[in-house]
């Protein structure tokens, strides 16, 4: 199974994602430059974290026009699993592959800390190995992670079970104090209507070895490996 890790100018979690896929999970992984126009047979696409184009204009706003994004869109439209982590989530929202937008954190501080998120749905390729209600301890590192959408969109996302991760306390309970950035409905990650495109602010790829303080991110990446194995895709 092959992971494509897209590199934009300013991506800085590309190596974390590559390392997790290749050296922790033992899968194939390949970097794909954003100006490339071929995903080279990848089975899963990762849009990594970072500061693509220096976050100029809006986070992810310029990267969405990179040539590779046309291929990512085709891949997603064909049902291929795509995950956007942090800046990758911002790129997917700007590209319209996911709904909503990310605003500045409510207290305007760049947040670099571990948080807890609850897995809300397990019928996506990135959460199928997790249990609904399972709490994951994952790091965040962002200045613009405050999820926003108009009330109708949020209601539709809830009704269609497209909220995949929600910030919570360590015991899984919801509270304003457990919502680090002010996200509406404590949304930390969502999926598209087809459920194959998932975006989230926390970094599962940085929580795959105990030396990093948590191995809770493994389930996200292991899920897609087993999801693809089950479909015989790779």
């Amino acid at each position: 199974m092959k992971f494509a890790v897209v590199e934009f100018p300013g991506s800085n979690c590309d190596h974390d994602a590559y390392y997790a896929a290749k050296h922790v999970l033992g899968q194939q992984a390949e970097f794909i430059w954003h100006k490339d126009t071929d995903l080279r047979g990848a089975d899963v696409v990762v849009l990594p974290g970072g500061f693509s184009y220096g976050d100029y204009l809006r986070t992810g706003a310029i990267a969405r026009f990179s040539p590779i994004m046309a291929r990512v869109r085709e891949f997603a439209d064909a049902g291929g699993p795509v995950i956007g982590i942090c800046n990758g989530f911002q790129v997917l929202l700007e590209a319209g592959l996911l709904e909503g937008a990310l605003l500045s954190n409510r207290r305007l501080k760049f947040l670099c800390q571990h948080v807890h998120v609850r897995v809300e749905q397990s019928d996506t390729p990135f959460t199928c190995g997790a249990a609904v209600g399972q709490v994951l301890k994952l790091p965040i590192a962002h200045g613009e992670g405050n999820y926003h959408a108009d009330p109708e969109t949020v209601a539709a996302l809830e009704a269609n079970r497209q909220v995949i991760f929600r910030y919570c306390a360590a015991d899984g309970s919801a509270s304003d104090a457990a919502n680090p950035n002010g996200s509406l409905a404590a949304i930390a990650g969502v999926c598209n209507a087809g459920r194959n495109v998932v975006g989230l602010m926390p970094h599962p790829e940085r929580a795959c070895e105990s030396v990093l303080g948590s191995t809770d991110g493994l389930v996200v990446l292991e899920s897609v490996v087993s999801a693809l194995a089950a479909t015989g895709a790779a």
């Binding site: 204009l57 809006r58 706003a61 026009f65 929202l93 700007e94 709904e99 909503g100 937008a101 605003l103 926003h148 959408a149 108009d150």
Partner: peptide, 8 residues
């Protein structure tokens, strides 16, 4: 297309 994000 670019300067504004119609969502926000």
């Amino acid at each position: 297309k670019l300067l504004a994000n119609p969502v926000i």
